[in-house]
């Protein structure tokens, strides 16, 4: 699957949300959004879930959040997190 990366760690609110929503609009079954953020972007996760995306949100030991979102429900996001 094609990875679309968005590193939002140094972007001011609400740019990460705006950019992520734009990417969500273009997603299909062959790709996924990989977002890195300093906070857990709950409004984005919520929006994605309400529109039936598959979502994974994970905080690493350094407090950085890794968010994966895809339209493909057969994709294993835990595995993609390691890619």
């Amino acid at each position: 699957m094609k990875k679309i990366t968005l590193d939002a760690r140094e972007l001011e609110h609400p740019k990460p949300l705006a950019m992520a929503i734009n990417i969500l609009k273009s997603l299909d079954d062959t790709n996924y959004l990989y977002m890195v953020h300093r906070k857990n972007p709950i409004p984005l996760i919520d929006l994605a879930q309400e529109h039936h995306f598959q979502v994974l949100s994970h905080e690493d030991d350094e407090g950085t959040w890794h968010i994966l979102i895809t339209k493909n429900h057969t994709a294993d996001l835990k595995e993609l997190l390691l890619v």
């Binding site: 609400p14 906070k39 857990n40 972007p41 709950i42 409004p43 919520d46 929006l47 309400e50």
Partner: peptide, 13 residues
């Protein structure tokens, strides 16, 4: 706007 705990769109006023 973010929260560590969670926000549902239907929770927002």
């Amino acid at each position: 706007m973010f929260s560590q705990k969670g926000l549902s769109l239907d929770q927002a006023p």
